[in-house]
Amino acid sequence: MSRYAMVIDTRTCIGCGDCVVACKTENNVPAGLNRDWIVEATNGRYPDLTTEFRSERCNHCSHATCVYSCPTGASHYWRGTNIVLVDPGKCTGCKACIAACPYDARLIMRPEGYIDKCTFCHHRVEVGKDPACVSTCPTNCMHFGRIDEPESLVSRLLRERRSKTLLPETGNQPNVYYLV
């Protein structure tokens, strides 16, 4: 199984929001809905403060509770990878997957009603391109690739730098990493 991961350097991210705009443009995400978002986390007490910017999205978990909770098989892994997609033709809009996602990363498409989410831009990955957010990033803080290939950029970054994932304690095995 190919395992794709996104590695985001919180030290070079400036929270500009270009990844969010790129995603909306690439995927025609309707106004008011977002597949990715940015969190600015400030730690400490004035004047000793540190700030971390995180571009967040679906974590394309290796143990995705949303996939297991789906009653129709609409939520599925794309071609045996860890990329989690929703098939609108199978989705009833029951919202079990929204309840099942500990990252609250899913949304209801308006006005259609099926459930939507980040796709890691699988239509670009398919032709060897990076997801839109990654290829747009002006500070080059976002990286994408196969984590099961030891010599890929993402694997090397994770070997050489300290990193973290969000809520690994949920057991979902997320695949978006943050370099800290």
């Binding site: 929001g17 008011g32 940015i38 400030t42 730690n43 609250d104």
Partner: peptide
């Protein structure tokens, strides 16, 4: 102290009821 701010919107029930 930790303070986390969302600096872009997101589709989330806690932000969009």
């Amino acid at each position: 102290m930790v303070e986390e701010l969302l600096i872009t919107a997101r589709a989330n029930p806690k932000i969009d009821p």
